[in-house]
């Protein structure tokens, strides 16, 4: 790992100031994506700005018809949140499925979505519920936030403060875990909130998380696994690597969407 300077601001404003003054700086949340890539020398920030002492960035709250999760909320705390388990258990199951217990003890939602790993779980939940990402500058709809593999709409100096998820009546996540890393080989989040039906897929797409409009259309008639019987998506645009071919990933999208629907409608 190359060396860097280390900063521990206590307010978002201070953190933003530090980012502005250090052009090659990076924010540090749980460090469970950033430190591994720095160890491999694939990232070389001049400064790390640790958000762990910034007040008010963590916790899970219900606000009206939404669940709001602070950016620094660790995966274990989101997964175990009583209010989240009660009003939106489909979302609670997402951080519960991430990595291993030690990873869940450190990793955060803000770090996960800012990183936008093409195999990460939270991006599917954000897109699959139509979440809003709230930064120190603005509110960004999940549909506009994830802009491709490891890329997001975040601008220079922008800090995620929290993520607001509408409480959908029906919501569930199904994931085919990569047996070694725990990441999603493919993961599918489905939800229904009134007329808003969403099917979001992570792990499969060559440009990161995406929605499956053909499935969403088919589910308008009836929000049930049966509506997707026999349906698949084309293998073009799917990721292909030593772990799974594009065809296999495309196949899994259909299988996991149906399983998620069974869960969501149980």
């Amino acid at each position: 790992m190359y060396n860097f300077t280390f900063h521990r601001p206590t307010t978002v404003r201070q953190a933003a100031g530090l980012l502005a003054r250090n052009p090659e700086a990076k924010l540090l949340a749980g460090g469970h994506s950033l430190l591994p890539v720095m160890k491999l020398r694939l990232a070389n920030p001049s400064a790390l700005i640790d958000l762990s002492l910034v007040e008010g960035l963590s916790g899970v709250e219900q606000k009206g018809r939404s669940i709001v999760i602070g950016a620094m909320t660790r995966h274990a705390d989101a997964a175990n949140s009583p209010v989240l388990q009660q009003v939106l258990p489909g979302l609670a199951s997402v951080p519960a499925s991430i990595g291993d217990p030690q990873v869940r003890n450190r990793g955060t939602i803000g770090g996960s979505i800012a990183n936008n790993d093409p195999n990460a779980d939270y991006p599917a939940a954000c897109l699959g519920l139509g979440a809003t990402i709230i930064t120190n500058k603005r509110r960004i709809a999940a549909d506009d936030f994830f802009t491709g593999m490891f890329s997001t709409a975040l601008e220079e100096g922008e800090i995620i403060a929290k993520v607001s998820f509408p409480i959908a009546k029906k919501a569930a996540y199904e994931k085919f875990k990569h047996p070694a890393s725990g990441f999603a080989l493919v993961g599918v989040f489905v939800s229904k909130r009134g007329a808003d039906i969403r099917v979001a897929v992570t792990g499969a797409g060559a440009s990161g998380v995406f929605r499956v409009k053909s499935f969403e259309e088919a589910l308008k008639k009836r929000f049930a696994a049966k509506s997707l019987e026999g349906m698949t998506i084309p293998a073009s645009g799917m990721n292909s690597d030593i772990h799974a071919s594009a065809e296999y990933r495309a196949h899994l999208v259909g299988v996991l969407a149906r399983r998620a629907l069974v869960k969501a409608t149980a």
Binding site: F6, R8, L28, G31, H32, L35, P36, K39, L40, L48, D50, S52, D100, P101, Q102, V103, N105, R106, A180, S181
Partner: peptide, 29 residues
């Protein structure tokens, strides 16, 4: 390991298990 996966380095930080190979000393101030 070099990939934060093996757990040989697990310690408790404020009572909670964490991988000490994926945590900076300065984060534990």
């Amino acid at each position: 390991c070099d990939t934060s996966q093996c757990g040989a380095c697990v310690v408790h930080i404020d009572g909670i298990a964490a991988k000490s190979c994926t945590t900076l000393a300065l984060q534990c101030e």
